[in-house]
Computed example of a mutant assay.
Amino acid sequence: MFHPTMLLRRLWPLCLLLLAAFAPAQEPEAGFSFGVVPQRTAIDLARSWVPVLDYLGAKTGYRFEFRTARDADAFEQRLDTGEFDLVYMNPYQYILHHAKHGYRVYAKEKDRLLTGLIVVRVDSPYREVRELDGKTLAFPAASAFAASLLPRAYLSRMGIAYTPAYVASHDSVYIGVSKNLFIAGGGVHQTLNNLAPEIRKQLRVVWVSPPVTPHALAAHPRV
């Protein structure tokens, strides 16, 4: 199972090199804001990422402040202002905010690619994506890359009509499908595998995207 601590420990030499190379505009004790795209609930994200940031702080002497948002749209608004010094974001967000603010990638997970999914309830009669034609499908947000943009592009390319419902996070998609609030929804392997077992066992994958580049750890030019 993916865990951010394992990711950043593998990438630690690169992170240390770049943190040393780019002196912050503010005094070190002021620290860095570290934004994390809200694929899961804020509590779950904090549980995973705060130990990582504490680890980085202990290694560098800098303070890293964990930040996220209540949902993907709110996170996008904060990205749009260039709020975060450092940020973990999806490839689509990186393209947009590299162009707008000059964010640049300084690390990504080695030897791991990202795949989008469409899931249904395990007891659902739907076995193929084409059977979802005309249904309302749940997605985390319009800008969620592998969990929304990739499956929606595939559905459109195949001529499958659907109504999107944006429900704020990957966890909300999975819970909504497991509770029969939605016929199906989009996600990614990482967040699906991180689900509580009692929810995960209620879901079945009916479509997987081709693999794409993973989320990036990026820095604002002021860093």
Rank of each mutant, 00 (worst) to 15 (best):
H3C: 03
P4L: 09
M6V: 11
L8W: 15
R9V: 05
R9S: 09
R10N: 15
P13Y: 09
L17N: 14
L18G: 09
L18F: 12
P24D: 15
Q26C: 13
P28K: 08
P28H: 11
E29M: 05
A30M: 13
G31C: 13
G31Y: 12
G35D: 15
V36M: 09
V37D: 13
P38D: 10
T41Q: 11
I43L: 11
D44I: 04
L45N: 09
R47I: 04
R47Q: 08
R47D: 01
P51V: 10
Y55I: 04
L56F: 02
G57Q: 07
G57D: 00
T60R: 07
F64G: 08
E65P: 00
A69G: 09
D73C: 01
D73I: 01
F75T: 08
E76C: 04
D80E: 09
L86R: 06
N90I: 02
Q93T: 07
H97N: 11
A99L: 08
K100W: 01
K100D: 06
G102T: 10
Y103M: 02
R104M: 06
V105N: 10
V105P: 01
E109D: 07
E109I: 07
L113N: 10
L114G: 04
G116S: 01
G116Y: 03
L117V: 03
L117S: 03
I118C: 02
D123P: 01
D123Q: 14
P125I: 09
K135R: 12
A141F: 00
S143N: 13
A144Q: 03
A146Y: 01
A147T: 05
L150G: 03
R152L: 00
R152T: 01
L155S: 02
R157H: 05
R157S: 02
S169Q: 09
S169M: 06
D171E: 12
Y174P: 02
I175D: 02
G176Q: 05
K179F: 00
I183D: 01
G186I: 00
G187P: 02
L192M: 10
N194R: 14
L195K: 07
A196S: 15
P197A: 12
V205L: 02
V206M: 06
V208K: 10
V212Y: 02
T213H: 12
H215K: 07
H215C: 10
A218F: 10
A219L: 07
H220P: 06
P221E: 05
R222F: 12
R222L: 11
